[in-house]
Write a protein that binds this DNA or RNA. Sequence first.
DNA 1: AGATGAGCCTGAAGGC
DNA 2: TGCCTTCAGGCTCATC
Length: 278
Amino acid sequence: MPELPEVETVCQALRPVLEGQSFLSIQLNRSNLRYPFPSNLEKELASHPIISVRRRAKYLLIDFKNNLTLIWHLGMSGRVIIENVNALFLKPSPHDHVVFITSHHYKITYRDPRRFGFLLLSPTQELEDLRPFNTLGPEPLDNSKINASSFHNRIKSRSTSLKSTLLDQAVIAGIGNIYASEALWQAWLSPLRPANTLILNEAGILLREIQNVLNCAIAAGGSTLRDHFRPNGDRGYFQHQFKVYNQENKLCSHCNFFPILKLIQNGRSTYYCNHCQK
DNA sequence: AGATGAGCCTGAAGGC
DNA sequence: TGCCTTCAGGCTCATC
């Protein structure tokens, strides 16, 4: 499910709930998700104050005062639910794999039907040396980490398609299948075009449109196709603003003449307008 | 270097 | 209604 905007939405909801607090208990309802859960998770983290909740690419990072960081990836179908223990509103599910209870009586549930997500633990200082963090590209929304020129430099040696390039987390971090198609449409660039054919100006336009589409999606609480819900139970609503994703055969809303096409690149669906995107 | 396919899983949707 | 197939927001590994 979650690309950068959805993870950011979850991060922004968790931050005020968790920062300055601690976990009273961490209940694991199975032994693993994609990977086995860290051993002694509760022992390592319970009662230790949480310093910060942040996001890197599609990863949630929770830093504890004892110099450990909980790495939390939501996989394809992961969902975080925040409830006050005195006002529970969602029915429990067989896919509620982890339940955190905080020191001020909040219940944080991690629900993930497909179980592609995972929790890992790392010393905070060593995080940057750990895969995949040691190979991740820059954050697209951090202007101190990326600009038109540096983005152009990162893609100008790539002979593969623009769509594949945007999905490569080592080139730029956090973009997934939805927002790659949407950003390329907004920039009038074909997903099939080799990345190394972009001139500086075009790379700048693409970066600007990546930032626009991600910022709009964050403001809308992300996109809810089926699995993504905000931690308070609301849906995101950016899916109503999709210009190409899931819009196969509808008329392109720019030229209003040619239909949106769908093709498979690297095993993933790509949507685009063959007339407007060059 | 890049493309492709498989694998990790469940569940929704569509075809018959 | 029910069975079957296909597909889905991510990531990693093996192979060509």
